[in-house]
Amino acid sequence: LTELETIYVTKEHLQETDVVRAVYRVLKNCPSVALKKKAKCLLSKWKA
């Protein structure tokens, strides 16, 4: 997740890969609050 925060991701990348699905899975299933927060921030950033 940290690496995903530092790289530039285009909408095309998100549509062509399962990155969003994987990050969403972390948000829903990971017991770590810190990782959930990171995943939520990434998804919000990409949605904007």
Score class of each variant (00 low, 15 high):
L1C: 08
L1G: 15
L1K: 05
T2M: 04
T2F: 04
T2E: 15
T2V: 01
E3F: 15
E3L: 10
E3A: 11
E3Y: 07
L4R: 13
E5C: 00
T6C: 07
T6W: 08
T6R: 10
I7P: 12
I7V: 11
I7F: 06
I7E: 15
I7D: 14
Y8L: 07
Y8P: 02
Y8D: 13
Y8M: 05
V9P: 10
V9W: 06
T10W: 06
K11V: 04
K11A: 13
E12P: 07
E12A: 04
E12C: 01
E12V: 02
E12S: 08
E12K: 13
H13F: 05
H13C: 07
H13G: 07
H13W: 06
H13L: 01
H13S: 11
H13A: 08
L14Q: 14
L14R: 14
L14P: 10
L14E: 15
Q15L: 05
Q15M: 04
E16G: 11
E16M: 12
E16L: 07
T17L: 00
T17I: 02
D18V: 09
D18F: 14
D18A: 13
D18M: 15
D18G: 15
D18S: 15
V19E: 03
V19H: 04
V19R: 12
R21N: 09
R21F: 00
A22G: 10
A22L: 09
A22I: 05
V23N: 00
Y24G: 06
Y24P: 02
Y24W: 15
R25G: 09
R25A: 06
R25K: 05
V26E: 01
V26F: 13
V26W: 15
V26Y: 15
V26D: 02
V26T: 15
L27P: 04
L27D: 00
L27I: 10
K28R: 10
K28D: 01
K28W: 12
K28I: 08
N29V: 08
N29F: 09
N29Q: 07
C30V: 12
C30D: 05
C30S: 04
P31N: 11
P31H: 06
S32F: 14
S32I: 15
S32Y: 06
S32L: 15
V33P: 13
V33H: 04
V33S: 12
A34N: 15
A34P: 05
A34M: 08
K36R: 10
K36I: 08
K36V: 12
K37M: 01
K37I: 06
K37A: 05
K37P: 00
A39S: 01
A39I: 14
A39M: 11
A39W: 10
A39C: 12
A39Q: 00
A39Y: 04
C41W: 11
L42W: 10
L42E: 00
L43K: 00
L43N: 02
L43V: 06
S44D: 03
S44Y: 05
S44Q: 04
S44I: 02
S44N: 06
K45A: 03
K45G: 00
K45C: 05
K45M: 03
K45L: 04
W46K: 00
W46S: 00
W46A: 13
W46V: 10
K47Q: 04
K47S: 00
K47V: 11
K47F: 13
